[in-house]
């Protein structure tokens, strides 16, 4: 089966601009609802920009195309971020952004496969995505389909035992077509993840489980591009992990400097202020 580059990947729009657009769309959705996991969305926007506009093979007009790379959102509450990326990629119409979190919307607050084109799985019960990714990677290999499976998970999910069952299974079954991206923003519901249930030294853990592992600044586009290239082009059949250290609320300094929590509180008047801040930093 042929690999192909999507029109979005081939466009001249810079990844910096894509990431900025993803941030702006996420904040607009947060403004619609007056709430949302916008801190995570701002933090992971660069990872999503590199995923959807550099790494993934996909056809925006045909999100179920058999040859697509699968992108699994294990962290259901990051849906606001993925919707922004799916809209930016042309998989969802931009107007639908106004329905985020509303009754009967295709964009519920937590990501679910049955609701949204381009949403591969129902995440949210944390620690499930990587196991499903193992099965999809096994299935793709059995079909002779060269597509990759990407699983985007959070540092908090590293506390779930099922994550490590899946990590063992991926290495045992030699799933070189599986790439696990860990968004390491060092936050989970009750506080800093390193103080809640520390997964450090994290790269050592992945390596000990038989994975190829990289750790990069998840808000450095060049570093992300290089890491994704390495993961995709690596010889051999080890599964690949990319630990991305990200900053919650990245790109909106007055939120970045706020005492960061898992669920960032944004006052009613601050959504517009956040959009204004972003507008002042629009890249080409």
């Amino acid at each position: 089966m042929q690999h192909e580059r999507s029109a979005a990947v081939l466009s001249n729009t810079s990844l910096a601009r894509r990431a900025w657009d993803i941030r702006r769309k996420a904040v607009r959705m947060g403004k619609v609802q007056g709430q949302g996991y916008v801190g995570q969305a701002l933090g992971v926007a660069d990872v999503l920009a590199v995923s959807y506009f550099h790494a993934l093979n996909h056809r925006p007009a045909d999100p179920e195309w058999e040859g697509r790379d699968r992108f699994l959102l294990s962290i259901g509450h990051y849906a606001i971020a993925l919707y922004a990326a799916l809209i930016e990629a042309g998989i969802l119409p931009e107007a639908e952004l106004e329905t985020y979190g509303a009754d009967d919307s295709r964009l519920p607050m937590s990501g679910m496969a049955a609701y949204t084109p381009g949403m591969e799985i129902t995440g949210g019960s944390l620690g499930q995505g990587l196991g499903i990714a193992v099965g999809m990677a096994l299935g793709l290999r059995a079909k002779g389909n060269p597509a990759f499976v990407y699983n985007l998970m959070s540092d908090g999910e590293l506390g779930e035992g099922s994550t490590w069952e899946a990590a063992m299974a991926a290495a045992h079954h030699r799933l070189g077509n599986l790439i696990c991206i860990v968004d390491f923003n060092d936050q989970q519901a009750d506080g800093k993840s390193t103080e809640t249930l520390s997964a450090e030294p994290l790269p050592d853990k992945w390596a000990a489980f038989g994975w190829h592992v990289q750790r990069v600044d998840g808000n450095d586009l060049d570093a992300l591009v290089a890491a994704f290239n390495t993961a995709r082009n690596l010889e051999g059949d080890r599964p690949r992990a990319i630990v991305c250290d990200t900053v919650m609320c990245k790109g909106v300094p007055f939120l970045e400097s706020r005492e960061i929590t898992h669920f960032v509180r944004v006052e009613a008047d601050e959504w517009q202020k956040a959009l204004s801040v972003l507008d002042e930093t629009r890249p080409e």
Partner: peptide, 8 residues
Amino acid sequence: SAAAGMAR
């Protein structure tokens, strides 16, 4: 979970 993935 892997069974779910293979079913997908």
